[in-house]
Amino acid sequence: MGRAVRELGAEEALRAARTGRKFLGAGPRRTEGYLLRAPRADPVGDLAAALRVGGRFVCPGDGDWPGQLDDLGDERPYGLWVRGDASLRMWALRSVAVVGARACTDYGVHMAALLGSGLAAAGWVVVSGAAYGVDGAAHRAALAAGGATIGVVAGGVDVAYPRGNADLIGRIAEHGLLIGELPPGDHPTRSRCVNCTKHLRSWRR
């Protein structure tokens, strides 16, 4: 789909998906999947749901788009749902990802907290996945230091996942930024978590 958007443009790629037209490099199953899912798209409803939680949609070409995601080529997100008041592009200019195991050791939590607080104190924006373990420790430390942090989530920016981190995710939304590829209300799946990790790796500055 990324290639189709690049070659055809977003509007023509959507028309092709809705009519079952085959994209270059896409097999029959993928084409059928696009055809089945396209009618369920509700962009107006998604935008309204985002606005209700203080969110917005940012796509390539917008002034707030973080340019380092363009390094992903055809695998870059078509756009990002963003929750929070800060400028995503400006925060991304001086950001660093701190990610690691969910089931980490006490030492892993300790080191993630040291990195999170130290980077925040030095003026860096700490980016992580809002998950258990290393991710949560880095976010919490950055917030405790009065710094900036971005949570990259695998579901909608209005969905607290994992549930045990609901308080942390709420604090990130209030004091930092939550970003994700999926529209409001969508829940994470295994493949979406993989995409989330891939995009975090592109956040290297």
Rank of each mutant, 00 (worst) to 15 (best):
M1I: 13
G2A: 00
G2K: 04
R3M: 04
G9E: 03
L14I: 10
R15S: 13
R15Y: 06
G20A: 10
R21H: 15
R21E: 15
K22T: 13
K22A: 12
F23T: 05
R29F: 11
R29L: 14
L35C: 07
P39I: 05
R40H: 12
R40V: 00
P43T: 06
G45F: 07
L47Y: 03
L47I: 03
A49S: 10
A50D: 02
L51T: 12
L51E: 15
V53W: 00
G55A: 11
D62K: 10
D64F: 14
W65N: 05
Q68I: 07
L69Q: 01
D70G: 08
D71R: 07
P77Q: 05
P77S: 11
P77R: 11
Y78R: 09
G79A: 07
L80W: 04
D85S: 11
A86S: 08
S87H: 02
S87W: 02
W91Q: 15
V96I: 09
A97L: 01
V98Q: 00
V99P: 00
V99T: 01
V99Q: 00
G100M: 01
G100V: 01
C104Y: 00
T105A: 02
D106G: 12
Y107K: 02
H110D: 09
A113Q: 08
L114S: 06
L119C: 01
L119I: 01
A121I: 12
A121G: 07
G123Q: 02
V125T: 09
V126T: 03
G129R: 01
A130S: 08
A131N: 01
Y132C: 09
V134M: 06
G136T: 03
A137P: 05
A138P: 09
A138S: 08
H139Y: 04
R140C: 06
A141W: 07
A142V: 01
A145F: 06
A148T: 09
I150W: 11
G155V: 07
G156M: 07
Y161P: 14
Y161R: 07
R163Y: 14
N165E: 14
N165S: 12
A166K: 10
L168Y: 15
L168I: 08
L168E: 06
L168G: 05
R171S: 15
I172T: 06
G176N: 06
G176F: 11
G176Q: 07
I179F: 14
E181T: 04
L182W: 15
L182H: 12
P183S: 14
P184Y: 13
G185P: 06
D186T: 13
H187L: 15
P188T: 13
T189R: 07
T189Y: 07
R190S: 15
C193F: 10
C196D: 04
H199Q: 09
L200H: 00
R201N: 14
R201C: 04
W203Q: 01
R205P: 13
